[in-house]
Amino acid sequence: MTPLIIVDDLTKEFLHAVKKPGLTGSVRHLLRPEYEKKTAVDRISFSIDPGESVAYVGPNGAGKSTTIKMLTGILVPTGGKILVNGVIPYKQRIENAKNIGAVFGQRTQLWWDLPVRESLSLLKAIYEIPEREYKRNLELFTDILNLGEFLHLPARKISLGQRMRADLAASLLHNPKVLYLDEPTIGLDVSVKARIRQFIKQVNQESGTTILLTTHDMEDIEDICKRLLIIDQGRVIFDGELQAVKDAFAQERTIHFEVRAPLHLAEDALHNQFPGAALHIQNEGSHCSIQFNRFHLAAGEIIEFMMKRSDVVDIHIDEPSIELVIRQIYESNLNNQRIIV
């Protein structure tokens, strides 16, 4: 399969004027301008196949938005190559625009003073969407995203959650091949987040739309994405399956037990049977948790061990948290080398 997105050695540098404060500084800058170079994206390479759902994560200022803006054709790269569906975005911007949809969480592409319905209809004209396709999509999105309640209101009068839903619909009306999402759930309440994630997943699975998502919300990633691209200081430091990275990094697992009678368990007894496991007893013995490496020990055996020794009321197992995983990856990235799982 030919990749849909090919990024090769992509680099973006920004020049910023270095101006001394005050009037003299301004005059001096006019005569002999000084610039400071900042590399936002540093020789990045990756490729994405059609239908993939990729999370693009990294700390603030890592170069995520800059990459997306180059992929969408907004920014012109300083060096390297980009190809999206066979098109160079910054050179053939209009050609590229037909293939893509984009949602930037911080701002809307709806017209502020127009009813949402009017905005969508303007987009229909802009993207030259055939009447039938437009109608079908609008009906579908109205249904899933529940747009009906605010289609008649101008964008400035709807809530953030409603705006986000409308923006998602707006970016997908023309059935783009790729959907870029930059912080699509930022500032939304839990139920709206869930609905939006569900919708994006559906679009990815049913229409085969390729998704590239940047977010700080780890639940977004876990719900929507199969693949993880991590970037730090302008460089890709990890690229792989989400599950693989979880397996590789989330080796620690914790089982929590709630017991009826206070537990009297010596750590030695546990260690004898399960070397390396750590025991924490809380609430005067009514609650205990056991932390262990799941590659060395089996959860079932630990549970069995506990059942024998006490009257267990409740059990739950902590899932490996993706947030923890990614933090570990950042931390192990001290010498800025690519991590291989």
Partner: peptide
Amino acid sequence: KGLLDNFLIRPVS
């Protein structure tokens, strides 16, 4: 304000 972004991702001049 970076609002030109919206114009640049649409297939119109």
